[in-house]
Design a protein around this nucleic acid. Structure first.
Lengths: 151, 151
DNA sequence: TAATAATCCTTGCGTCCGGAAGTATATCGG
DNA sequence: CCGATATACTTCCGGACGCAAGGATTATTA
């Protein structure tokens, strides 16, 4: 067993951090806007997409989940009017998930509180340089992936 | 909407990275050692604990999951002999989860392949300094938490 | 000491998820 | 033009999870 293995510890800490942050943010996010973290990321992808819409396959790839999960997640969002179903005139197989006007305002509000939670998270003991560095390093993973939110 | 918000993008990228790495590592890990990623982290915690054992509550806190999940996860691991149940003579409420001898060898093997996957992950375009920096920055989150694997 | 509260674990229930199978449509090769 | 293959989506099924309730044991406090 290696004495010092930065790659190993970095990976472990990444998983631990994600699990911790998920457990920490989910309750507040759900109680404030009625959205699970997954749903926020779902809507965030749509808000960044051209025409505010995405095919279900692409959404699945961007969220690293299965197509069946997208189908199920879209249903309640449609029922609450945040999202609507659209057809593609060129290809009858695809069913776009499109952000509605109310969906846009809702995700804007949720994104605002999410940003506030993010800044609060780094308030204690993090310099601006630290945060930028962490974002940059993690960006090496996400840059490869489809749907990187670079703003 | 802020033009540049490093805290926001860092948090988003952290979640995206974790989801991607989970999807990437789980299949290989499962096929090679018959262990899910959660089970690997489960056993890893035990292997680092004094006497190779932990109370179920502590295990739940370290893995950021519920007690009922620990109860259910322990069952198949007991059946395959990687883990056994132990009582505390001082407190009849606790039921330790203890790593068995076969469990020790199994987690050692799985940890080895996990380390190899970790180094492979950073092979392209990452300097040793980058990896150490990422590990250090993420360590600020995990250092607060119980069960930090610092080796 | 006795009642109350706190802790540890398990079980039941509802929810969410991934993979396989099924349906519909599009594309490719002859 | 037509069969074969590929793609997009949905549905079904089994597994994994969190929460709330319950049972057992320990700690606290009057």
């Amino acid at each position: 067993m290696p004495k010092d293995d930065p790659a190993f510890s970095a990976l472990l800490r990444l998983f631990r951090s994600a699990a911790w942050l998920d457990a920490r943010f989910s309750p507040e996010l759900g109680s404030v806007h009625g959205l699970a973290l997954n749903e926020l990321l779902f809507l965030l992808q749509l808000s960044r997409a051209p025409l505010q819409r995405l095919r279900r396959v692409d959404l699945a790839n961007r969220l690293h989940t299965s197509q069946s999960t997208i189908t199920r997640m879209a249903l309640p969002l449609e029922k609450s009017g945040l999202v609507k179903r659209e057809a593609d005139p060129r290809d009858a197989r695809v069913a776009y998930v499109t952000l509605t006007r109310t969906g846009r305002t809702r995700i804007a509000e949720a994104e605002a509180t999410f940003r506030r939670m993010a800044t609060d998270l780094f308030r204690a003991g993090w310099s601006d340089r630290d945060i930028a560095q962490l974002s940059s390093l993690l960006g090496r993973f996400t840059a490869i992936l489809p749907g990187d939110i670079t703003e």
